[in-house]
Amino acid sequence: MTLEEKQNEIIDEFAVFDDWMDKYEYIIELGKELPMIDPSKKTDDRLIEGCQSRVWLATDVKDGKMQFTADSDAIITKGIIGLLIRVLNNEDPKTIATADLHFIGDIGLQEHLSPTRANGLASMVQKMKLSALKAVTV
């Protein structure tokens, strides 16, 4: 599945919710279910300090594809991280570096990625892209 197809799949999943609370119910479930970062990787150098919630991000390159694991102390943040990882994992560094992650806006979660939101997610996406860019240039 291409990155674009993965985004469209998520948009379709969210299309069934016409109520905000149902949407968040789903995000919370994703946050509870998704396998997250290895505890040994929850180190300070992987910590992205937001004003509201904290995010840990570990990046890896395996067979030329980017691998991300992440965690947060807030479950909604965690759920959104799960969506981002689902879209970006196993993609070429170059694809990630140039990816337009429009699905977040399409499913109505743009506020969480706004740089002023200060929940660490905007910085996390930036870090994901930077690490991909680094992998391209190596």
Binding site: W20, I28, Q52, S53, I75
Partner: peptide, 19 residues
């Protein structure tokens, strides 16, 4: 986490501060 509670309150029309 206060952020989670605040986010869900917001979606129900309740404006509070968290953090």
């Amino acid at each position: 986490h206060p952020f989670d509670v605040g986010t869900l309150l917001d979606k129900q029309g309740i404006a509070v501060r968290t953090g």
